[in-house]
Structures are given as structure tokens and as C-alpha cells.
Amino acid sequence: MPTLPTTISTNAGLLLRYLPAVLAVGLIAYAIVAGGHFVTLAGFALIYAVFVTGLNIFMGYAGQASFGQNAFAAIGGYASAVLTATYGWPPIPALIVGAAGAALCAVVIGYPTLRLRGHYLAMATLAIGLIVYEVTVQWQSVTQGYMGISGIPPLGIGSWEVTSDRAQLIMLSIVVTLCMASAWLIRNSRFGRAIVALSGSEDAARALGVDVARYKLAAFVVSAVYASLAGSLFVHIVGFVSPEVFGMHMVILGFTMLYVGGIGTITGPLVGAIVINLLPETFRGLKDYQDLVYGAALILLLIYAPGGLASLGNALKRRPSTPIPATAPKGARP
């Protein structure tokens, strides 16, 4: 690491700590005011913020890996699409059915696999991502295959619908705020402590009476519900769904957002979702070099802010106060 002046630690640290979140909120506010192309980008960023908030609970807090979160988004998205466009349900009940379906699916996959340690769960989740994709392609009578389903109505209650770009963005902002608040409530509770504990040491958690398998499963189900909600939001905002919408790219994007924003933090998912959605746009002027610069920016971020953007302030604040090797115990075992 390049040496950072330690004197800026407190004030600048505090500033840096909130800067990414403040910028994120500022950008959304700007999008609401400015309108246009920016609104679409900001909308996708907010939908991804919901998705990544769920991923963060399972990966950031419980310390597990899921490569199949796109499956839960697909379940939510298709439930909303089919029930509203084909069967004429109102959006909210359809969304709830989708979330319940995703939760049930998470229980069915998670129950046998979460008892195992290591890579078994990751493999199982990868499989479910592929299976759900195939189902959306093949089950043509319901999903209309690659053609997809169009004419999905916007979100709304009764005759009141959220139709304008700006109103949708405001609604998404409220949903994201509620998602982040719920994530905070979960993290700062007996439930949240138990899942963060098991990510630190499963044995120690069990020795204190934490049913590790059950809590991992619960975290998995919670993350699936957030993913399902993101899927439902997506289809109502875009008005169209096809299998590609919930492809593997969604998982990769989600991981990138989580690590860039700050894994295990509350604001990280939002910050990551916004940065990853807007960064490529920023480099658009570079034309051919766009992807190269984007990749380089990601690598630099991960090298210099391994805890993600949301923890930049913490990193600055902590470094001078706890020189890690210097506090090694006297007489510690080698």
C-alpha cells in the first residue's frame, strides 16, 4: 500500500466512510431530476441493489457462496410475469407468490446441501441456476421459451400504477431503502449475529448452541427472497421477460458489485450496484478501450480497497490505530 498520511485518519476517514453512500444517493437523486437515459441506468442499479443486498446476507454475513442466485430472481420474475400478464393477477400478490416459490425452492436445495461444508453448496447452487434457466427455455406453454413474455403491467395497487420513469425510480428508491433497513435490522439482531458467527467459526458457533445448518439455510432463504423481489421488480419495470434476462451474467455482476461495493457492509450492495452500472458509461468515450479501462478500474479497486468502497473510511481509520503485527501477544505460540 502507498503510505497515506495518518493525520487525515479521523476526519477524512469519516468523510470517506459516508462518501460512497452519499454519492450513490446523490446520483439517484440526479437521475430523478434529470430524467432520460440516466433514469434507466439508475433503475437497473437499484434493482441490482436489492439483488446484491440478498447476496450479501448469504455471502457477506453467513460467509457461504451461491452461484445460483439468478435462479431465484428468475422464479420471482417469471411468477410475476406469468401471473400478471397471462392470468391478470394484480402485481403485489404475484410478487408474493414468486417470493414464496423462491423461498420454497431455496429450502429444497439448501436443506440437503447446506449440511455439507466446502464446495458442495456452491456446486448445487450452480446447478439450480442452470436448471431454472433450462426450465424457462423449455416450458414453452407457460414461459413462451426464448420468445419471452411481453405486456407485463407496471407495478401498482388497484387502479393506481407506477408508470412514469421518475415515479418508478422513486418507488425503487423506497424499496431499496426498505431492503437496506431490513438488512440492517437482520444484521444487528440475534439472528444476524448467529450467521456472522458461523462464518467465523462453525465449531465455535455449534459449541455455543447455534444450529449451524439451520441458520445457514435461513440465510439462504432470506437471500433468495431478496433475489426474487429483484426479479419481480425487473419484469414490471421493463415490461418484458425472457430466459436471458436472468442468465449467469446476473451472478457475475452480483459478485462484482458485492466486492466492489463492500462485502459484509450495509451500504456496500447499493454502492457496488451503482458503480458497476455507471462505470462502463463513464468510459464510453474511450470507445475501443472501454472494456480495458473498466477491467483495470475494477482490479485497482480490489487491490487498493479490498474491503470495497463502502469500507474505505474504515480502512483508513483502522490502519493507524491497530498495527496488526505489533500487538502480537508475548509468548504466543508460533
Binding site: L185, I186, S189, R190, F191, G192, R193, A194, V196, A197, S199, G200, S201, A204, A205, L208, G209, V210, A218, V222, G264
Partner: peptide
């Protein structure tokens, strides 16, 4: 539990003496 504070570590010790779950959170 490396990602928890000292206080939170001890709070996890209260796990079996408490019962708040996800809904209570």
C-alpha cells in the same frame, strides 16, 4: 468470530438463553 466485535462475540454466547428469530429481528 472475527467479523464481530468483542461485545457481539459475547452476545452470541447468549444464543441458547434467548429466542428472538428472523421475525423478531
Amino acid at each position: 468470530f472475527q467479523n464481530l466485535t468483542v461485545l457481539e462475540n459475547v452476545k452470541v454466547g447468549r444464543h441458547i438463553r434467548t429466542k428472538a428469530g428472523l421475525w423478531a429481528a
